[in-house]
């Protein structure tokens, strides 16, 4: 018994040791270490995903590389080393918060709640929750999911949105948690779950990349409004200002449109499919008036 008490005491001492530190200064850290660490996803198509050579690519990755280029110039670090760190929906926020990654380039919704822990650059994409189902399931709306198995990716805003709806409307859905979007998609594909609520653009990407794209469809009204942004650590005004400056520059020069059409309106790796997803009015508005409003 005594040894466990001493263990608890030791743990507490350890915890007390880790007390709040001063505000972050990511730019200084990057300058001093000559390295920047970028968090990326495995299967957030076409934002941040792995190509056949298992290299992370995508819309968000391109935007982040623009940031890196600007940083090289700003910090006078032509040999700035980029370290790529894979993250999941569950690990991304703790990893930003504990400084393991300097910025996350994936498909992260800027939500007011998350702003308590992390900070976001200006919005670079706008989407919302819809349902991915098999055509053969005949599910057309959320009401059809009463009592059915629904797969959710752990730690996403979509998970929250559907659970809130389920509690409010008393639908009695049965949730299957999953680690990443690819796994969630496979749950629907293999018949474990009837539906997968997720940002519609990611669903389009997953369907596009699947073996039989014709079997699936995206249904339902938008259940949530999800503005995507690059995630950085909280209370770092210098980095936020620098990042927003670069993003706003891309928007003003129209360069972002080129990057957009490269990933959403042209064939993309690994299979060379075209998502054919023209820019929404919401995103056009966000590009005309850059902002970092959370949902």
């Amino acid at each position: 018994m005594k040894r466990f008490v001493s263990l608890i005491v030791a743990l507490t001492a350890c915890a007390a040791f880790i007390s709040p530190a001063s505000a972050a200064d990511t730019l200084k850290k990057i300058k001093d270490s000559g390295t920047i660490t970028i968090g990326h996803r495995d299967a957030s198509i076409p934002f941040s995903y792995l190509d056949d050579k298992q290299k992370p690519i995508g819309y968000s990755m391109d935007l982040c590389m623009k940031l890196v280029d600007a940083m090289k110039a700003e910090l006078k670090l032509p040999n700035l080393k980029v370290v790529l760190n894979p993250v999941t929906s569950q690990t991304r926020i703790p990893l930003i918060a504990n400084g393991s990654i300097d910025m996350e380039c994936g498909s992260t919704t800027n939500s007011v709640e998350r702003q308590k822990q992390v900070s976001f650059l200006n919005t670079t994409f706008i989407t919302g929750t819809k349902l991915l189902v098999k055509k053969s399931s005949h599910v057309k709306s959320y009401k059809d999911l009463k009592g059915k198995a629904v797969v959710v990716t752990n730690g996403t805003t979509n998970e929250r949105a559907i659970k809130e709806l389920d509690a409010k409307e008393n639908l009695g859905m049965k949730f299957i948690p999953s680690k990443d979007h690819a796994e969630s998609f496979l749950s629907v594909d293999s018949g474990r779950a009837v539906a997968f609520p997720m940002d519609d653009i990611l669903l389009a990407g997953l369907i596009n990349n699947s073996k039989n794209p014709g079997e699936f469809e995206i249904v339902g009204a938008f259940l949530s409004h999800d503005p995507y942004a690059i995630m950085i650590s909280k209370d770092d005004p210098a980095f936020k200002k620098f990042g927003d400056g670069v993003i706003n520059g891309l928007m003003k020069s129209g360069e972002i449109n080129k990057i957009y059409s490269k990933w959403f309106e042209s064939p993309i790796p690994p299979k060379g499919n075209n998502l054919k997803f023209p820019m929404s009015d919401g995103l056009k508005e966000a590009i005309a008036h850059p902002n970092d409003k959370g949902a």
């Binding site: 880790i18 530190a21 972050a24 200064d25 393991s100 990654i101 300097d102």
Partner: peptide, 13 residues
């Protein structure tokens, strides 16, 4: 960070 007294959390991949 606590051990090395670094100004920000130490990056560990």
């Amino acid at each position: 960070q606590a051990v090395t007294r670094a100004p920000s959390p130490v990056h560990v991949g």
